[in-house]
Design a binder for these strands. Structure first.
Lengths: 216, 216
DNA sequence: TATATGTGAGAAAATTATTTCACCTTTAGC
DNA sequence: GCTAAAGGTGAAATAATTTTCTCACATATA
């Protein structure tokens, strides 16, 4: 995900997730404070606002328990009937790119119809688009991208891929030309990234299979 | 199985379940009242207390959103908690607009996360966008639109709607101005449609909740 | 006529979110 | 060593919300 959390912020974020899973509702500010040891609500309020601005939670003003996890951890534990649950992934600075699945933020059920052409459903995961560089191709920042993990050498030329640049995950068109790897945005305002193959500056997660987006 | 519920009580109980599934938190008394049509909180309070004494829910006194569902013997009561399958609809010339659900093309599982804000998941269906008039808003021809069926008078101004024009289903922005209904495309190359209300030339299916698209 | 059930207005009581002010620690820069 | 900025903590008061309570009325049924 975008900005990394401080140790304290992560402690609070983890508590919120645990609480929602067991209690089936979001905690209040003082419940958070009691749990992590902050005696004053305003202290909690500040922390929670930090989580919000960093994009980890969403809040509804003036509403009791008015917060929700952004990556939608599923506290209601869906159990499925043939519909695969894919892990929603995010990344913090300390994670290695190839251990993305280790701590999924949550699970999202995806109908097999939206995974047509996938060779291995087990290799699929969901990531959020980190910028608007592919708007002209119909992909927007925040979109949930269903991605099939594929080693870079197996990526077909010209396909849409999810690629990690540092800590942000981007959707781009993958092109290999003249021994160089190009990541092409659909929008002229965004710059194309070019690397020698296997440069540590990027990490191809896989090919984009489908897109899910909440409209309202 | 405990005491049976009256019709009204069941209506309220069902609302609570739907709400908790899509919003991931219990509703407040006024949210319940607004939804089922009880103008006074005390009225709702009484109803909710009845649900509690009959053993359908549990409550924590003085706590905001302090209610939780009690698992019933009936396995479907709490735990149809699976992923809802929505009908995918299309239209042929002979169908009446309001019988869309009668012959669904198929079913598609949609995670509740993609139905946030929906009042009634039962009223949701999936339709395909029939043209590229909303490309600039990120909707493309062939996209699967998750739509909450809503009577036209309940559509909020400025929302994205799915509307039938003859036999094609379009995504458009709905605007009611000067006693006329406007369907605005996002793209200048497409013409805006304007009608007097309830003109037979169009049929509003409902509000667009989310978008699903296969990329490859 | 009782009795049970459902509805509702209005206000009090309790909880919850927000704001204001202040202080402490760490870190980077000079 | 000093200073500024950023991150974290906390007390206290206010604002908004949510729950709870008190009263009343209407309808159906035994």
């Amino acid at each position: 995900m975008p900005t990394p959390l401080t140790e304290r912020q992560n402690e609070i974020y983890e508590f919120i997730r645990r609480f929602m899973r067991t209690e089936r509702k979001p905690p209040t500010l003082q419940e958070i404070g009691d749990a992590v040891g902050i005696r004053s609500v305003s202290g909690v309020h500040k922390q929670v606002r930090a989580l919000e601005t960093k994009g980890y939670i969403e809040r509804t003003p003036n509403e009791a328990r008015g917060l929700s996890l952004v990556a939608q951890d599923d506290p209601f534990a869906l159990d499925d009937d043939g519909v695969p649950d894919l892990p929603v992934i995010s990344r913090t600075s300390s994670d290695a790119p190839d251990s993305l699945r280790d701590k999924p933020q949550g699970l999202l059920a995806v109908d097999p119809y939206l995974m047509r052409g996938v060779r291995d459903p087990e290799a699929c995961l969901i990531a959020r688009a980190g910028d608007d560089g592919m708007n002209a191709a119909g992909l927007y920042k925040g979109d949930l991208l269903v991605v099939e993990e594929v080693p870079e050498r197996a990526v077909r030329n010209g396909t849409l891929v999810a690629v990690l640049m540092g800590e942000t995950l981007l959707a781009r068109r993958f092109e290999l030309a003249n021994g160089r790897v190009h990541f092409r945005p659909a929008d002229r305002n965004y710059t194309e990234h070019t690397f020698p193959p296997d440069d540590p500056g990027y990490h191809v997660v896989g090919e984009i299979v489908s897109v899910l987006r909440r409209v309202r």
